[in-house]
Design a protein around this nucleic acid. Sequence first.
DNA 1: GGTTAATTGTGGGTAATAGTGGTTTGAAAA
DNA 2: TTTTCAAACCACTATTACCCACAATTAACC
Lengths: 139, 139
Amino acid sequence: MLIGEYQHSLDEKGRVNFPAKLREGLGSRFIITKGLDKCLCVYSEDEWQILEDKIRALPVSKSRQLQRFLFAGAADVVPDKQGRVVIPQNLRDYAGLDKEVMVIGASVRAEIWDKEHWLESCGELTADMMAEAMDNLGF
Amino acid sequence: MLIGEYQHSLDEKGRVNFPAKLREGLGSRFIITKGLDKCLCVYSEDEWQILEDKIRALPVSKSRQLQRFLFAGAADVVPDKQGRVVIPQNLRDYAGLDKEVMVIGASVRAEIWDKEHWLESCGELTADMMAEAMDNLGF
DNA sequence: GGTTAATTGTGGGTAATAGTGGTTTGAAAA
DNA sequence: TTTTCAAACCACTATTACCCACAATTAACC
């Protein structure tokens, strides 16, 4: 289970340190894809396999755009000895990664966000929305 | 069942002692999350698992912000030999934890409050509100 | 009720790990 | 052969986890 919020910076080589806590859950090799809301999603090999099977099970006639988006925008990466990964240029552009980057745990996957964008996105969540949701969840 | 009210202080390393009475009910490893009213909620592994399943069952289209907030705002912690846990910086900020901290039992979970904030919050509860609630509950 | 023992809580030091910047190496292209 | 780029490697710093010693509180016993 991947949880937590970590801030790191993108160096001039396009590397981002991946928090040790998240690496534990993702394994030694993982897949980065384009996600919703201009963030990048990171899956362990196992989780990606599950996802891939589901996507392939969809009828081509209906989902070929989606398939292209997901597969073309995917990259598998291996962290270096220090735990950093290189984010391919196209994914960096997609997520608007600049300097400060947030890496967050989201249960079954991790996500990579530009910091500014992450803060914006968090700001959109109101107390009322939270209260309502928590009622429903039985918090 | 978690009950009681305990005052502890946050040391300069960000550690808070977790009362032995509450540790008994929570197990040797537990999850701290952002809760309503700027407090932190603490769940046992079992209780958290139930919550996690519920959160993941929410529709992605409508509540992915909320999902991110809940997972990113969570941390799993293991008390040290003396029974203390380190509260991550982002959670300390969220709850405005400064020096004096209250740890309270709340049935199925525990909560961590900044002391000032806790006292304020308690002050907002009037006798009338309580009386009404007790009527409804048939106390 | 007072004394002792055990448990709980607090502060701080040290060793291990994680994170950052930069350099070298090796492969591919010119 | 030279140049360029990217990936692997190395060294340093910062942070975190772990451990020890002591203080305070609680429980047990005479």
